[in-house]
Design a protein around this nucleic acid. Structure first.
Length: 484
DNA sequence: TTTTGAGTTGTTCGA
DNA sequence: GTCGAACAACTCAAA
């Protein structure tokens, strides 16, 4: 009987570029396993949209493994208990998995390592979800970077991310000792109502879907990425974020694929560098959360502890439901609700709107995104919301309050994005589309729009909201001065 | 240790 | 309509 390793899948739902799986396969037989441990994740257990994705991604992994003669064992519950049981029943002597970087994943890893080592089990983790391990990127004082540009410079100076590993061939898959759970019983898919109807046409979760998306990005979109990425009506972004989050595509694979494309076509160097720096932001967020776990519920800039957050439930709901009366904001929130995704430029606009125009605590926004985004990622989500609110690392200055009308005019000049998601305004001419309340009555009438009936009046006046927000920052400054 | 330059994504105002 | 300057003060990174 050869050695048996339990390979615990986590945010690495793929077979290629998986160092732990290679090592497990070298040892002998491998039992592939996924544990849905919602208690360990707490508030950061997958939200609604992520559950949809997880279901389909696990299905895809099951199928891939079945094609290769393996059976993915699904279990739900406390990881340590399930692993102990399995070890007892199978005689496994090793548990391998990919490393996680969020506070709850690290806590869980610590617990597993402690308990399994006590049982004499070889418990090992492998880095495969980031380009660089957080311990390897530090400034000259040995401290973590707090500003993106020097962080990314350091990453670019550091050793090149490892070349991705191929899928291990001829793995000796072990059969599970019991059938385990049926994926359907986990009820990860929405029901009553099925708000994800039609998402299959938008997304293909799983490693193959990720590869196709990557190929399409490199072939059709990378060329225009640098200039096109800011225009939400254009198909210039990669939409790889959910694939990256669930580990269906490793960042190293992506890194080397983009680099290789740029080597072949020198014209792609600029957009490739731009794209890689966006991957750098993913890296930066993960590293920040690793070094500063308090980011989960505390502002990175401590003076923001006393920020006079306010906001009201009706306004927050108007934001969530895409009826703030600001077309580009509403378009974004509806895209999110209907597809589980929102274009990056629009994420910034709606985040600025919630935190600055509505003076709502960034955590409200973070929670909503966590629940509704298919790419909801703890590091990205926390750091980006704090950044938008002005309390994060390397955050926007306080006076940078996005003007939703100007943003709309600048980044959706022809209104394709707004018309798609806010069809009741589709007949408005371009010049009035982003501020319908300023359109002459005759124009509104001709477009068949009655404000307050077909489409809401603005929930707040931009100028007033801006003044209020600036005033709120003023109170922080005064408080800081008084404290001296 | 001290010093210096720089810091994702913007808006508004006034010329 | 376009353009440049002002909008704070501070922390961080690195020489």
């Amino acid at each position: 009987m050869t050695a048996l390793t339990l390979y615990l899948f986590r945010h690495d739902l793929r077979l290629r570029d998986l160092p732990g799986l290679h090592k497990a396969a070298e040892r002998g037989r491998v039992l592939p396993l996924y544990i849905l441990d919602e208690a360990a994740a707490g508030d950061f257990a997958p939200g609604g949209a992520s559950r949809w994705w997880l279901h389909h991604s696990l299905r895809a992994l099951q199928t891939s493994l079945a094609d290769r003669g393996g059976t993915l064992l699904l279990r739900r519950g406390a990881s340590a208990d399930i692993l102990r049981q399995l070890i007892e029943r199978t005689g496994a002597d090793a548990v391998y998995f990919s490393r996680g970087y969020t506070p709850w994943e690290r806590a869980l890893e610590g617990e597993l390592h402690r308990e399994l080592t006590e049982l004499g089990i070889d418990c090992r983790r492998f880095g495969s979800s980031l380009l660089h391990e957080p311990e390897h990127i530090a400034n000259q004082s040995g401290e973590p970077y707090k500003v993106f540009t020097p962080f990314w410079r350091a990453c670019r100076r550091a050793s090149e991310p490892a070349m991705p590993l191929p899928e291990p061939d001829a793995v000796n898959w072990a059969e599970p000792p019991s059938p385990g759970d049926d994926l359907e019983d986990w009820q990860l898919l929405p029901d009553k109502p099925n708000w994800a109807a039609g998402w299959e046409t938008l997304w293909t979760p799983g490693e193959d879907g990720a590869s196709e998306r990557l190929a399409r990005f490199l072939g059709e979109r990378l060329e225009d990425y640098a200039s096109g990425r800011d225009f939400p009506a254009q198909e210039s972004t990669s939409r790889l974020s959910p694939h990256l989050h669930f580990g269906e595509l490793s960042p190293r694979t992506l890194w080397h694929a983009v680099r290789a494309a740029a080597e072949q076509h020198p014209g792609l160097h600029k957009p490739a560098d731009k794209f890689l720096s966006e991957l750098g932001w993913r890296e930066f967020s993960a590293h920040l959360l690793f070094h500063f776990p308090a980011l989960v519920d505390s502002p990175f800039r401590p003076d923001f502890r006393h920020f006079p957050w306010g906001g009201s439930k009706p306004r927050r709901e108007a934001w969530q439901q895409g009826r703030t009366g600001y077309p580009v904001v509403d378009a974004g929130m509806r895209e999110l609700w209907q597809t589980g995704y929102m274009h990056n430029r629009v994420r910034m606009i709606v985040a600025s709107f919630l935190t600055k125009h509505l003076l709502t605590h960034w955590q409200r926004g973070e929670r909503w995104f966590h629940d509704t985004l298919v790419d909801a990622d703890m590091g990205n989500n926390l750091c980006s919301w704090q950044w938008a609110a002005g309390c994060g690392a390397d955050a926007a200055p306080y006076f940078r309050i996005f003007n939703p009308v100007l943003q709309g005019k600048k980044f959706d000049p022809e209104g394709h994005y707004v018309r798609r998601w806010v069809p009741e305004l589709a007949a408005l001419p371009d010049r009035h589309l982003h501020a319908p309340w300023e359109a002459p009555a005759s124009v509104l009438q001709e477009a068949g729009v009655t404000l307050g009936e077909d489409y809401p009046e603005p929930v707040v006046d931009h100028r007033e909201a801006r003044e209020t927000a600036l005033g709120a920052w003023q109170t922080l400054r005064e408080r800081a001065q008084n404290a001296d």
